[in-house]
Write a protein that binds this DNA or RNA. Structure first.
Lengths: 106, 106
DNA sequence: GACATATTTCGATGATTGTGGAAATAGCCT
DNA sequence: AGGCTATTTCCACAATCATCGAAATATGTC
């Protein structure tokens, strides 16, 4: 994981509208959700939604899969876990650490 | 955790300069690092560093503690863990989930 | 008080972002 | 081809951001 990628992913999540979108997709799980369903759930104009979705897709946090006319969006858990790992993996590397730790479990 | 706070924390981390600052502090552990030491390590103009540090402090991700003329900065692990928890806590709530999971351990 | 060091605030500039309506495109069906 | 639905691209605008030099402030020492 290079820092530019981590930063762009964090920045993608660092906007209320995009974070709402992402959380709905996280809740939706592996089945994902069509763009239209997202739009209904979130009550956002299509152009705005499309714009934000593109940013999430560009960073790899969201995957889109076309099924006929509808686009199914799913949260990419692998990228999310890599990002979280990046944030915590060097915790206290320079120092003794007694604080809480986070780890990714299978 | 309200979504506005999570988003502002993510946005704070979503900038290469601030992420570099934050990671150095994470590595530094509980002892933290003075602003001056950060500046040396990162080779950033003081005004720029101060500006970014302020954003990290405002969101709660970094704590500053004055010791005489120097300001010691430390990463706030509790806030970081709360943020990570917010990102993953509702994973697949609407669906069966076989994907990887993340949890915070003591 | 004078001075030294650490850090922040001010101010200005160019760049990027968020928003959403209108028009365009993509894919399917008959 | 024509029509229908789903989604994106285009465009414009105001708002926010990143950067950093210069000046200001804070805290301690002599």
């Amino acid at each position: 994981m290079i820092i530019e990628k981590a930063a762009s992913q964090l920045e993608a999540l660092g906007n209320v509208t995009r974070l709402r979108i992402y959380r709905v997709l996280v809740r939706a799980g592996e089945e994902g959700l069509a763009v239209g369903r997202l739009q209904e759930k979130l009550d956002i104009p299509g152009s705005t939604l499309s714009h934000h979705l593109k940013r999430l897709v560009d960073t790899g946090l969201v995957i889109q899969d076309r099924q006929a006319t509808t686009l199914i969006c799913t949260a990419n858990y692998n990228h999310m876990n890599a990002l979280i790992g990046y944030l915590v993996d060097e915790c206290c590397a320079d120092q003794e650490c007694d604080g809480p730790r986070t780890r990714v479990v299978a």
